[in-house]
C-alpha cells in the first residue's frame, strides 16, 4: 500500500514539475521579450542622440551615424545588449554590414520622385519592361494626385484612387498591377519621405543605376557605362570620399579626384546630378535587442527618425 502511495506521489510530483516548469519558461520568455524590447529602444534613443550631434551639411558613410561600433553595439550592466545594423552595397558587387544607420534619401521617394525616376526604378529593381514600367509609374502618379486636381477624376475611366501623397509604402500594394512579388522587390529601395533627390553619398547600386537610367532616357550611354560609373561612385565612398556639394560640377570634380572617369561617364554623371543630393533629413535604423541569458529570439525594432522635425515617423517592432 505504502509503495503504491509513493509511486502515486512520485507521478504527481512529475506532473506538477512539468506544469510549473512550462509556466516558468513562459515567464522567462516574456521577461526576455520585454527586456529585449527595452534594449532595442535604448539603441533607437542612442541613434537619435548621435544624429543630433551631426550638424554638417552633408550625410555620408564616413560619418559617426553611419558606422560606429562603439555607439551602436553594446552590452549594458542591467543584463542586455543591443546593436543597430545597416547593410550597404560595395563596389565589388556584394554587401557589407555595419553598426549604424541608413538614410531615407538613399531610397527613391515615391511621392517626390519625378515620373522618369519611378519608371526607371520599376525597371531596374522590379525587372519589368520599359512600357510596363511607364504605365505603372503613371498609375502611381495618378494614385497620389488628389481627386480635385485630377482632370480625369469622375470621368469615365478616370482613376478612382487619387487620395493624395502616400503616407506609407504599403499603400503601393493597392496600385493596380503592383503585385506582391514586385512590391517585395521595391520595398527596400522606396520611401515616402526621402525628398525629391537621392543622396549620392548613401544610395545603393540599384537606386544609382535607376538614377542613371532616368537621367539618360534615350540610352546615349550604354548600360556598361552606367555600371562602371556606379562602381566608381561606390569605390569613391568606400575609400572615405564624400560628396559635399550637389552642384553637378562640384560632384564630378570630387569624384575625379579619386577615380578616373571616361568622357561618357563624366557626361552621364553630369546628367545624373539633377537627381542627386548629398544630405538627408530622415534616417532609418534596425535595432536588435536581447536579454543576457534569457534565451529566445532578440527583439527587432525598425524606425525612421526625422531629424528636422525631431520626431519618429515610422516604427515597427516584431
Amino acid at each position: 500500500m505504502g509503495l503504491w502511495v509513493l509511486v502515486f506521489l512520485g507521478g504527481l510530483a512529475v506532473a506538477v514539475g512539468v506544469q510549473v516548469a512550462a509556466r516558468l519558461e513562459l515567464a522567462r520568455r516574456l521577461d526576455g521579450r520585454l527586456r529585449g524590447r527595452s534594449m532595442a529602444q535604448l539603441a533607437a534613443a542612442k541613434a537619435v542622440a548621435v544624429l543630433d550631434a551631426d550638424t554638417n551639411g552633408w550625410d555620408g558613410f564616413s560619418e559617426r551615424w553611419a558606422a560606429s561600433p562603439g555607439d551602436f553595439s553594446n552590452s549594458v550592466a542591467t543584463g542586455g545588449s543591443y546593436a543597430l545594423i545597416a547593410v550597404r552595397d560595395v563596389s565589388d558587387g556584394t554587401t557589407v554590414t555595419n553598426f549604424g544607420l541608413n538614410d531615407e534619401s538613399a531610397r527613391v521617394d515615391i511621392n517626390a520622385a519625378r515620373t522618369p525616376l519611378l519608371s526607371a526604378l520599376l525597371q531596374t529593381a522590379g525587372g519589368i519592361g520599359a512600357a510596363q514600367a511607364a504605365a505603372l509609374a503613371a498609375k502611381i502618379e495618378k494614385s497620389k494626385t488628389p481627386k480635385d486636381r485630377d482632370p480625369e477624376a469622375g470621368a469615365a475611366g478616370g482613376a478612382p484612387e487619387g487620395r493624395g501623397p502616400f503616407l506609407s509604402i504599403h499603400e503601393l500594394r493597392l496600385v493596380e498591377g503592383l503585385n506582391p512579388a514586385l512590391f517585395d522587390k521595391l520595398r527596400d529601395v522606396v520611401t515616402v519621405g526621402g525628398g525629391s533627390r537621392v543622396n549620392v553619398n548613401t544610395a545603393g547600386r540599384t537606386v544609382l543605376l535607376s538614377v542613371a537610367r532616368a537621367a539618360d532616357p534615350s540610352g546615349t550611354a550604354s548600360a556598361g557605362v552606367a555600371g562602371a560609373l556606379v562602381r566608381k561612385v561606390l569605390k569613391f565612398r568606400e575609400s572615405g570620399g564624400m560628396f559635399t556639394s550637389y552642384a553637378g560640377l562640384g560632384m564630378a570634380a570630387a569624384l575625379t579626384q579619386r577615380e578616373q572617369l571616361s568622357g561618357d561617364e563624366a557626361a552621364l554623371f553630369q546628367k545624373m546630378s539633377a537627381y542627386l543630393a548629398v544630405s538627408s533629413d530622415r534616417f532609418r535604423g534596425v535595432a536588435w535587442g536581447g536579454a543576457t541569458g534569457k534565451g529566445g529570439p532578440s527583439r527587432v525594432i525598425e524606425f525612421v527618425w526625422d531629424r528636422r522635425q525631431r520626431k519618429m515617423v515610422f516604427w515597427h517592432e516584431d
Partner: peptide, 27 residues
C-alpha cells in the same frame, strides 16, 4: 495557475505591439 492572468499578460503584450506599430496612412 492564473491561466487567465498569463493569457492576459501575453494579450496586453500583443495589443501594445500593435498600438506601437500603428501606420500613418491615407487609407
Amino acid at each position: 495557475w492564473d491561466e487567465a492572468y498569463v493569457q492576459a499578460l501575453l494579450g496586453l503584450e500583443q495589443v501594445e505591439r500593435d498600438v506601437r506599430n500603428v501606420t500613418v496612412t491615407r487609407l
